[in-house]
Design a protein around this nucleic acid. Sequence first.
DNA 1: GGCTTAGATCGACGAGCATCGATATCGACC
DNA 2: GGTCGATATCGATGCTCGTCGATCTAAGCC
Lengths: 114, 114
Amino acid sequence: MSREDVVALCCAPLAAPTLTDAEIDAAAALFKALADPHRVRILHLLATSSEPVCVCELTAPLGLAQPTVSHHLKKLVAVGLLEREQRGTWAYFSLNREALDRLAALADLRGALP
Amino acid sequence: MSREDVVALCCAPLAAPTLTDAEIDAAAALFKALADPHRVRILHLLATSSEPVCVCELTAPLGLAQPTVSHHLKKLVAVGLLEREQRGTWAYFSLNREALDRLAALADLRGALP
DNA sequence: GGCTTAGATCGACGAGCATCGATATCGACC
DNA sequence: GGTCGATATCGATGCTCGTCGATCTAAGCC
């Protein structure tokens, strides 16, 4: 599941009459990235922060070791939900607006209902 | 994670200023239920069907054995996304509108963004 | 009652995942 | 170059999950 596959979902919400296998796999991959409480909290922390956040600021509120935080961030970046920016030694992460639009469209199954 | 916990998320979207641990766990549990392609396809099949669907109609399009389909349906019912209705020997499943509303609100992280 | 069928449950197997210590990589600074 | 600090990667461990055959339960029918 590449990032391009996930991005291709932009105009194919779950409510569309038919979804291809690839689109369904991409949707499941996106939800899978959110299937862990720590990753949901990372998104929540970034959503309530006005500026990008570096890894060192996440270990404390999450109560996790640094390798584990890197592991979760990598998964969120892989599906396009997060963007990574290197500033010297530090790595800053922020939400990807387009990915959030895609997620919101995907999660809205109600469009096809009568 | 009981169904009541998940339902309690109704008025606490992910974009809210602060989320409790319980609310975050409930959100992750809801996304976890969607983290499998077969379960996404089940929701898609139900969303594109005007009437409730029985288990025997799902095994063929999913390409799964009957116990596996029952397993997935049980998970979707557990988080409230599906409703189960017994008609004689058959069990019919349909989407829960309120759960879909909750899901759409949860997945919309954009509310708190500037 | 006895048979048939739909669906749920159980048990086991294999794959995947979260976690963290140890290590590698990379940039900044002297 | 050498050192230090921040982050990523690696390896191992323990747990969870998807899958399906076998079995159990319950409803309909003769």
